[in-house]
């Protein structure tokens, strides 16, 4: 018996070591993508010049690296991290593989907030108004979902359905504003829905980072609760999880993260859906590993998409929202075809 337990413990430790190795490898990949992104750009600084400009004040090159390339890279990391993490949280609390900031309508409502600010005029001259509106609307829709969650007899399916309904509602409201807008406003709205990392500076990154990273420890602390929720509600309750409170807190935190991830850069689709799935295929369903794996994957995907988007057709930039889908979908299909077991 003791021997068997010892074997199990050794296997468990080996498994955890493997997962830790995956995390380290993914972190290295993310840094690698960031370095590639750092060295690619219209200014042709080259590898050496770009890296050197990080430390030495080399005039224009230093300014390009610190004020233009690094903010893009930092924002790509923050946005990818946030969207992937929020997607993982939504999938966990709703026990539904289709849940993501988009399918729950939170991204759509944030988009509506931005569109409303653009069309009413204020947003053109102050991107903080656009971001603030996006955040408020994201919170509003998450509270709507919360309201549904608190209804008697509400199930995870009800929540997903409510999310889809909210997504349609806010998409329609955005379309209405788009319909009412002038040609110029329609132009701006279309580009907002494509997503762009060109506009961000350190100030925006500071705000977005606060919204994305501050909730992270709180979410991570709930990892074991999410593991129990993944079995079923009854088991979770029997193990002492306050499932109502866990869902509500997680929903609010994930909404805050979603709003932070997209409010300055527009809509970047697919990351919130695809990253948790890929992460689950790699490290399984233990949320202690799933959260960081999905977040690192999300950041890596957005970083890769941004580098491809601004170098493939340079100096014209292919919007990030388009490239993320182009990269993410084939990658997901590849993993789905290669998988050997059910991962969800």
């Amino acid at each position: 018996m003791a021997g068997e337990t010892g074997t199990l413990i050794r296997r468990y430790r080996r498994l955890n070591a493997r997962k830790l190795f995956v995390l380290v490898a993914l972190f290295a990949i993310m840094i690698g993508f960031a370095l590639v992104g750092l060295t690619q750009g219209s200014a042709n600084l080259g590898w050496k010049g770009a890296i050197e400009s990080l430390w030495r004040n080399t005039g224009d090159a230093h300014a390009i690296i610190w004020n233009l390339r690094l903010p893009r890279i930092a924002m790509a990391v923050v946005a990818g991290w946030g969207l992937a993490l929020a997607g993982t949280v939504f999938q966990a609390i709703l026990r539904n593989p289709l849940a993501s900031p988009y399918t729950l309508g939170i991204a759509s409502s944030a988009g509506f907030g931005a569109v409303a600010a653009i069309v009413t005029g204020t947003g053109f001259y102050n991107e903080y108004v656009i971001a603030g509106n996006a955040f408020l609307c994201a919170l509003f829709s998450s509270f709507l979902i919360l309201g549904v969650a608190r209804m008697k007899g509400s199930t995870t399916e009800t929540l997903v359905l409510a999310g889809i309904a909210i997504m349609f509602l806010f998409s329609s409201l955005s379309s209405l504003f788009q319909y009412m807008g002038t040609k110029e406003e329609v132009h701006a709205i279309v580009f907002w829905f494509f997503g762009s990392l060109s506009k961000v500076g350190w100030k925006e990154i500071g705000m977005a980072s606060a919204m994305v990273f501050v909730p992270c420890p709180f979410i991570y602390r709930m990892s074991l609760d999410f593991n129990l929720l993944a079995v079923d509600d009854e088991s979770a309750v029997s193990m002492g999880v306050n499932i109502g409170k866990t869902r509500i807190v997680a929903l609010v935190l994930a909404s805050l993260i979603t709003a932070g991830a997209i409010c300055f850069i527009g809509v970047i689709g697919f990351i919130g859906l695809v990253s948790p799935h890929i992460a689950r295929m790699i490290v399984g369903g233990d949320h202690r590993y799933l959260f960081p794996t999905a977040a690192l994957l999300g950041s890596s995907l957005v970083l890769a998409a941004d580098t491809v988007g601004r170098t493939l057709w340079a100096p014209q930039v292919i919007p990030i929202g388009i490239v993320t889908s182009f990269i993410g979908v084939p990658f997901l299909f590849y993993l789905l075809m290669r998988r050997r077991k059910e991962y969800w």
């Binding site: 219209s42 200014a43 004020n67 233009l68 340079a314």
Partner: peptide
């Protein structure tokens, strides 16, 4: 020399 009438660009390209 652009092929798209209203293309997104980077601040870096303008600087270059």
């Amino acid at each position: 020399n652009f092929t798209i009438p209203y293309s997104e660009i980077t601040g870096e390209w303008v600087l270059s």
